[in-house]
Design a protein around this nucleic acid. Structure first.
Lengths: 248, 248
DNA sequence: CAGTGGTCTAGACCACTGT
DNA sequence: CAGTGGTCTAGACCACTGG
């Protein structure tokens, strides 16, 4: 059994949830099986009840565990594919890390173009305004995972801007340029058939179905668009969301 | 200022989160404004820090508040009214009405089959358990819009169940059978190439890309799966979601 | 430096489930 | 009844932010 490391900055509840998640993902706690009780986990890992519950909360939130009052905490079972909750977002590299892979990325150049219509509308640009488009491909364990086209109005950039798009994190570039936090994206979710070009990037057959997120990055007030990106996801990345019912 | 009621079964953290949420929704804590600090809320409502944090956690999770380490908890502001928002759901007919069309629907029969794997896992059924599958097609202005396969465990239905799946609303059928409200769905979002059969239903070319929502219907505790459905959306139906950023 | 959120402990009592 | 998760308290120390 893996033990906790108390000499690291990683919180104990996070470590415990990773241990339990691994037991679920590896099939050692199959779907429908009861987890050790919270008091048992307290004793076994020398943690307080609250810390154990923080760990379980993470697993519940991520869909690995469900709780039954008076009975116990139960495994929902392993996720077969990469999954992620889409009501939140993080940087692409962090995203790939969170779904359990090692992220890398590669730049595929920088273009100055007239803003495509969806970009122009999202960023409230004028007709024929120029934008800079950074093309990057993110890999998970060296397999292509996400193709991103990040757009920025040309006028916001100086004459000798960083042609690499400031490394892997478009969000941080946005924050640097605009001087405000990026707290939200408004994302349109589209299913599309991979074009020849996209299929080559993602190592797919042209025509196969992929998810495209067209994301408008917003400041904390949700009123000011700061940036726009098109993200093309490899089909083995799955998305999940908890939806709540509106009253009729 | 509203106060807490300590003589009710409603948890204190839930009451506090409702109070704060109302202050945000009504504009009394506008977007970007700092909330009272956690210690201030402790004093004002005579609560422990953990209870205050439980309340804030709810607001963070629901997208009303973001947290900044060392600075404070900030209001994100009231929710905008965005059409097609996928973090909420309504019945299909109501959905089509809300996007501005006239909904109709047609039943395409009822099958008793062994539960497919995704259904079995979602509903926590045993191997080879039978489910009943209701196939329906929803039209928007007489154009095919959503193909739905609604599943129910065979054992929950009597011998002479309604072969029509109780009209257009699978949710209401679920509520009738289980005796509990359907408040949530956990939805997997998948891009897929339309099969020959699906293409015929939706009047598409086979192979064209469509969105599939695989939905597990949950009771209010989010712990009990009540039903499962696969919804295939015609490409002219678009989805949008507001995502908030997680702290790294 | 004081004030903030982030983490953690060691208790307590309750409501719910099964025997 | 004993065992479970659900809620709550009253502390503590840490890391981060800003003046």
């Amino acid at each position: 059994m893996i033990n906790l490391n108390r000499d690291t900055v990683v919180p104990l509840y996070h470590q415990l949830s990773e241990i339990l998640k691994e037991l679920i993902q590896s099939g050692q706690i199959p779907a429908g099986t009861k987890l050790p009780s919270e008091r048992e986990l307290m004793d076994r890992y020398h943690l307080s009840r609250n810390t154990v519950r923080q760990a379980i909360d993470l697993l519940v939130h991520d869909g690995f565990v469900y709780q039954d009052h008076g009975k116990g905490n139960y495994s929902i079972g392993p996720f077969l594919n990469i999954q992620y909750r889409i009501d939140t977002f993080v940087e692409h590299s962090e995203f790939l890390r969170r779904v359990g892979s090692t992220p890398t990325y590669k730049n595929f150049g920088t273009d100055e173009i007239v803003a495509p219509e969806e970009v122009r509308k999202a960023l409230r640009l004028g007709e024929n305004e120029l934008v800079v488009c950074f093309t990057k491909l993110f890999f998970a364990n060296n397999e292509p995972a996400i193709l991103t086209l990040d757009y920025l109005p040309r006028k916001l950039l100086g004459d000798n801007y960083d042609r690499t798009g400031s490394g892997d994190a478009y969000i941080r570039l946005l924050e640097e340029i605009n001087g405000r936090m990026v707290k939200f994206t408004l994302s349109d979710i589209v299913a599309m058939n991979a074009t020849q070009e996209i299929a080559e990037y993602l190592n797919l057959t042209p025509g196969s179905s992929i998810l495209l997120f067209q994301e408008t990055f917003l400041d904390p007030s949700k009123n000011v668009p700061l940036g726009f990106a098109s993200n093309y996801y490899h089909p083995n990345i799955h998305f999940r969301i908890l939806r709540h019912r509106l009253n009729p």
